[in-house]
């Protein structure tokens, strides 16, 4: 294309050659995302402070009675759940605590998915493993994952403490009677929600560790 209208469509034939200006744009874009992520994490930590204190208090009571933590999520949220579980099991400081990610075993996950359906892959594991002292923490960006909602319902029926992390406006998790403590990241970018859920999970873990440390001092 080489006519007078070229300036309107500078890259229409893929003949863009200015790498320098793209790199400048990319760098600015990265900085903008870093700033947006930091602002969302700051806001969510502010807004969630009271729920985190309540949830951490209830979790600490259960850990002290011998309860264990089960975490679960789908896709990227399943890996964020794995990070949360390992934070409890192999902590950078404080007490190691029993936690498991229900996505870790692909044999169990595919057996359940194949035989009873993906909606039940987490709830069926709770039936096998959980006791009434335990804790269920599910991570979802939409708040609408069927297998999480199913798992929260099963957990509630079995007496577990239930904590949900959701994004957007919280979806069905925020309205569910089976999610006792729901931390909602009020945003519409899956990426920024996941980053913020990691920060909230870290805050929740720190709050539990502080309570355990205080218990140790007063005992």
């Amino acid at each position: 294309m080489s006519d007078a209208a070229d300036f309107l469509y500078p890259f229409i034939e893929g003949d863009e050659r200015d790498v320098g200006s793209l790199l400048v744009d990319l760098g600015r874009s990265a900085e903008g995302k870093v700033a947006a992520s930091a602002e969302l994490r700051r806001t969510a930590l502010d807004n969630s402070a009271e729920i985190i204190e309540r949830a951490a208090s209830a979790m600490t009571d259960r850990f002290l009675m011998g309860g264990r933590l089960f975490v679960f999520g789908n896709g990227g949220s399943s890996t964020d759940a794995a990070s949360l579980a390992s934070l409890f099991v192999r902590p950078p400081w404080g007490q190691p605590l029993p936690a498991r990610n229900l996505v870790d075993d692909s044999a169990v996950l595919t057996a359940l998915g194949n035989d009873v359906g993906f909606e039940l892959v987490f709830s069926r594991q709770l039936i096998a493993h959980s006791s009434a002292l335990d804790i269920a923490v599910g991570l979802s960006t939409s708040g609408n994952s069927r297998n999480l909602l199913q798992c929260f319902a099963e957990a509630t029926g079995r007496g577990l403490l239930t904590i949900g992390l959701a994004g957007y406006s919280g979806g069905e998790m925020a309205a569910s009677p089976h999610v006792q403590h729901c931390l909602v990241v009020d945003a519409d970018s899956v990426h920024r929600i996941q980053e913020t859920q990691a920060a909230l999970g870290f805050d929740l873990w720190q709050a539990v560790q502080k309570r355990l440390a205080n218990q140790g001092q007063s005992a």
Partner: peptide, 25 residues
């Protein structure tokens, strides 16, 4: 633990897809 490692690879993904909008490059 605080979300920044996740942020780092999210941004790598996001910028990689921005580059696909510039086929000439």
């Amino acid at each position: 633990h605080d979300g920044r490692l996740v942020l780092m690879y999210h941004v790598l993904w996001e910028l990689t897809h921005v580059c696909f909008e510039h086929p000439g490059l």
